[in-house]
Design a protein around this nucleic acid. Structure first.
Lengths: 243, 243
DNA sequence: ATTATCTATAGATCTATAGATAATGC
DNA sequence: ATTATCTATAGATCTATAGATAATGC
């Protein structure tokens, strides 16, 4: 059965391979997946795979680069808001939400890759977490905290604002990680949007915002209205689709 | 070079293998490690490995069981304390600390296994996180919250206490996970004990305890005195050493 | 006599390459 | 004429077993 495959120019084929192969690689891990499986997922022969990538290792490296962009956030909108208690609530809510609910089609793929990296050498995780966008977000959070403190809505911190940023990030990240496992080992009460709102409230109180202020800021009606506002979705951009 | 190995009775050898093999398996993952490497780590031939474990897969399963116990906490001491704001602070502080700083020798090994499980099928993570000790801790936290609320030290939650417990747990877990990667992708300000205290404060505020109360409860002097109290270390028991 | 251990190796699988064939674009 | 693709296969490696040898305990 000589099956003549669709012929593609080198660069397109390369992208197509990366795209097709990513989910499998993320799910099974570099060592758990075979080049035979990868080729099958890309709908090509193993020989062609090795023509486009000199080795399995090289393919793996390219996949990381291909995937890294999917963690970008459109933070410019947030950057435009004036620092204050309301801005702080929005910032935390959207960061938490965009981590817990990733909208990109390949969401759990890129996240699996990220967390897998953490238990291994951590290289990929470093590229993602040390990227400029996080420095930016940290700065924004700092500005929001300062404004909220000045307004009396927030307690001064005992430690560094930077640590508070990461604690917030961690709360959301671990919820996301728990949801990656087929049957989650932790079952939260309420539906996902509820969990997102509760986690955002937890994080806001955690960074020092007074409980009463948090309750006023994160009402169901308010977050619902934010979700309808396309100006501030803060979600990951779509991946570049091949072809 | 016929090297006569030390001869051990079957059960002892089996335990010895499990013990010797665990770190390598956790670090490289089931697919990333070879039976040759595993045998070498255990100081035996591959043939002997397969005599004690019918397959690599079977060895892997046993390793999970062997490792699961290292997550146990000595929560009985906490269970003995009367619910109240002070108990709540202690509980959160020690849970956070025991997650971030695991004292057992094979600490990062068991944690790697746990987090690796999360990006894979999640089976092991479920055994660990759904264990009775967590239900117990959750109950204790609930009692502490109720008492602190009655005392006016803590805001009533908008959601379930159970979710608050997990958010606290998540904050600590992710700090721990970040520290597993060789060079951590996130660098916190301050030394580890400081980070632990700040994270505990974050979590306490997060679950609703008023910022001023948290500040009063988690002073450096207070946590230092807790650390000197052997009654309440709440740390993981030592692994059973072979032989 | 039984049980633990080793050396040697089979059989399967996995990465990677060689060399032939067919589609594309000038 | 060039470039993409395939089939076939080499060479390495990996899991697992067969069969021989040596230590232990009755």
């Amino acid at each position: 059965m000589p099956r003549p495959r669709r012929r593609l120019p080198a660069d397109q084929r390369k992208t197509a391979i990366a795209h097709a192969v990513l989910p499998l690689l993320a799910r099974k891990g570099f060592d758990g997946v075979t080049t035979r499986e990868l080729a099958a997922a890309a709908g090509i022969s193993e020989a062609l795979l090795f023509r486009h990538f000199p080795s399995k290792e090289a393919l793996n490296r390219e996949i990381y680069e291909y995937c890294a962009h999917s963690f970008e956030l459109d933070y410019r909108r947030i950057a435009g808001l004036a620092p204050g208690t309301g801005m702080l609530a929005r910032l935390v809510y959207f960061v938490v939400r965009s981590i817990v609910i990733k909208r990109a089609a390949d969401a759990d793929t890129s996240l699996r890759l990220l967390y897998r990296s953490l238990v291994e050498d951590g290289r990929f995780a470093r590229t993602v977490l040390m990227a400029p966008r996080f420095r930016m977000l940290r700065k924004q959070l700092g500005a929001g905290l300062a404004a909220a403190r000045a307004a009396g809505d927030c307690e001064a911190a005992d430690g560094a604002d930077e640590n508070l940023f990461w604690f917030m990030h961690h709360t959301a990240s671990m919820i996301c990680l728990m949801r990656l496992a087929g049957r989650p080992p932790v079952s939260y009460r309420g539906n996902l949007e509820t969990v997102v709102r509760e986690a955002a409230a937890f994080a806001l109180r955690g960074i020092g915002v007074r409980p009463a202020v948090v309750a006023a800021q994160l009402t169901g009606a308010k977050t619902a209205s934010w979700l309808r506002d396309p100006e501030l979705t803060l979600l990951a951009p779509q991946s570049p689709q091949p072809e």
